[in-house]
Design a protein around this nucleic acid. Structure first.
Ligand SMILES: [Mn+2]
Ligand SMILES: [Mn+2]
Ligand SMILES: [Zn+2]
Ligand SMILES: [Zn+2]
Lengths: 183, 183
DNA sequence: AATCGGATGATAATTACTACCAAGTAATCG
DNA sequence: CGATTACTTGGTAGTAATTATCATCCGATT
């Protein structure tokens, strides 16, 4: 299995390209291009840390001392909605526990957050061959498969919407998902 | 790639076995076997929902109307520490954002929570073949590799401890990890 | 430049936990 | 079995992250 830590130089080039297209993409998505949004996406693209809102806030503050933390939270969420960012922690809103301690994986409905167990023995085999990745010592792993459960697959298409907020209850990052299957 | 939703009957059998061994395992771990702990592990094992603390609370309440929500939180965390349960949401404490929207995966240091990007093109290929799992419509997926970063791998062994509480800062589920590599 | 709907900042409110501490109770030991 | 004691629990106050509210502001369009 090929498996590589992402190289820093590559990321920097990618970030520059994305930043260049940002204003255009905002307009296309019906969002105003504000200095705050620019500063936030710039800070996010500049980081390889998968930062939290408060880290972005501290960075952006240096150039925009008046920016509000609420704006940072809102904006990061908005960026996820239009597909300009991704929330790494799709299930971060509250802790979910599992009585099944045998190694296994999960399918997660991105709309209602139902979670079901999945077994992928081959994946476990593939991964357990790896003792380290780069300079990280591997302990284990867990695959999240993002999906729509039968109940949610039927209901309204969701997605789409020219530029509406489109909120779903109890959901941090709404339905938008790019993931493995994006492109 | 073999990939199967876990069958309900199998889970029930597993749960019964685990429940039978629970008291013994508690004592071995230096924990008292209290009615609250029994009720909580029973509720957790009985559920396939990967419940949150408040759901367990509601269930357990029916038999123990005086139980405290704080006890449920504490106990679930304790169960994770002794390996009798697993927190599905290892990064649930705060949202982490990613400017990289190209499909990729992550290595996460279980101690300091550093996150770095990993590319596993073969995995993406394997999974993108799947349009659905059981009756879930697959949208994408994301692999979390749990690991120790170079900085943390050096520092004290952690783990072990006969029955101490062993708390690490800002960490919900401490260092304990079973995952793919458990057995 | 005028208009106006979305965006922002300040702050209150909410949510999910976590810390505390007095009181209760498993476990151990006569 | 009853005393001892360390571990647990319940009740509650406190904390941290996020979200809601709303008056004001400003980017986009005309
Ligand atoms: Mn599970
Ligand atoms: Mn990433
Ligand atoms: Zn659903
Ligand atoms: Zn680390």
């Amino acid at each position: 299995m090929e498996l590589q830590l992402v190289n820093e130089g590559r990321r920097a080039g990618y970030a520059a390209r994305r930043l260049a297209e940002f204003a255009e993409r905002c307009r296309r998505g019906g969002l105003a291009v504000t200095p705050q949004r620019l500063a936030i996406i710039r800070a996010l693209l500049a980081s390889a840390e998968h930062p939290r809102a408060d880290a972005i806030y501290e960075t952006v503050r240096r150039e925009h001392p008046h920016i509000s933390l609420a704006t940072v939270h809102r904006t990061l969420e908005t960026l996820c909605e239009i597909g300009e960012a991704r929330k790494v922690t799709m299930l971060h809103d509250s802790a979910r526990y599992d009585g099944n301690v045998v190694p296994h994986h999960h399918v997660i409905c991105v709309r209602c957050r139902r979670i079901r167990d999945v077994e992928i023995p081959e994946l476990n085999d593939l991964l357990s061959a790896r003792r380290e990745i780069g300079d990280f010592k591997v302990l284990g792993s867990s695959l999240e498969i993002h999906a729509l459960c039968p109940d949610c697959a039927g209901k309204g298409r969701a997605r789409r919407a020219k530029h509406g907020r489109g909120s779903s209850p109890r959901t941090g990052c709404k339905d938008s998902v790019q993931d493995t299957r994006g492109g």
